[in-house]
Amino acid sequence: MNKLHTLAISSVVALSAGVSAAHADKLTFYCSAQEDWCQLMARSFEDATGIDVNMTRKSSGETFAQIKAESANPKGDVWWGGTGDPHLQAAEENLTAAYVSPMRDQLHDWAISQATSAGDKTIGIYSGALGYGYNTELLASNNLPEPACWKDLLKPEYKGHVQMANPNSSGTAYTTLASMVQIFGEDEGFEFMKGLHANINQYTKSGSAPIKAAGRGENTIGIVFMHDAVKQAVSGFPVKVVAPCEGTGYEIGSMSIIDGARNMDEAKQFYDWALSTDAQNLALQVNAFQVPSNKGADTSPSAPDMSTIKLIDYDFKTYGSSAERKRLLQKWDEDVSVLPQ
C-alpha cells in the first residue's frame, strides 16, 4: 500500500515535471539599441537556442523607468543595449543582478572594468565616442567654416545651427555634459555649456535626434555619438563626422540581468551568447558602428577608428552615480537652461 502510494506520488511528480519541461522556454528581453538591431538580436537568439524571445524596444531612460516601476514585481529578464549610465544606476539601486559570465576572457578591458565598477551587475557590450556631425550642404549654403574642435561650436556664426539633446531626458546629452566637465574642469565646462546654449536651436528629447535632423536638413550641426553620425552618412545623408580636437568622452553600451528575473537561466544564456563573436558581428548587418566588446568581433571600415580619437579617461564611477548626476543636471537647469538664447 505504502509502496503504491509512493509510486503514485512519484509518477505525479514525474508527470508534472514532464509537463513543465514541455513548457516553451522564453525570455523577456528589454532592448535599448536601435529597432532593427534589437529585432535581429532577438530573432538570432531564437534561432540559436530555440528560446522564445519577447522583445520590447525602449530608450535606455524609458527602460530604466520601467524596470524601476516594476521592481516590486519584475517582468523583464535581461536588458541589453543603451548607454551605460542607466545600467550603472540600476546596479546602484540593486535593480539588476550580479553575474560573472564565462565569456569574460574574450572581452576588452574597458568592458570588464565597467562590470567591476558595478559589482558585476552590468557589463560592456560595445563602446562609442562622443563627437558631432554636420550637414555639409547646409554648412556650405550658409557659408559657415568647417568646425573641428569643441570650442569651434561657440563661435557666433553658428548661432541657431547647433542641436543637442536635453541632458534631463537623454543619456547622450548627459555624457556630453559630464565629458565637458572632465575635459575643461567644472567651472570652464559650465562656461562652455553656457556659450553653447547661445548657439543651440533646440534641445531635443532623444539623444540621436540632432544628427537625424541634420541628415534630413532640418539642422546643421548635431552633438551626438559618432557612430550615430556615421550611420546617417552611410544611409546616404550628406553628413560629415567630427572627432573634436580637444579629446572626447565615450559611452559603454551595457547589458544587465534584471534582479528577480522570472527566466533567470534563459537570461544567463542570452548574456553569454550576446558576448560571443557571433552575436556581436550581427551589428554590422544593421549599420551599427559601435566598437564591439569582444576582441574577436569584426569592426566596420566605416566605423570611427578609435585608435586615432583622443579619448579622455572617462570616470564612469563618479559621473554615473545618481548623486553626481543629479547635482550636475540641477546646476545645468539653474545656470544654463534658463539663460536667454
Binding site: G61, A69, D85, P167
Partner: peptide, 15 residues
C-alpha cells in the same frame, strides 16, 4: 503632456 512623459521616462525619473 510631453513634460509628463519625460518626467517618467527621462534620465531624471521623477514620478
Amino acid at each position: 503632456s510631453t513634460e509628463i512623459f519625460f518626467a517618467i521616462v527621462g534620465a531624471q525619473y521623477d514620478q
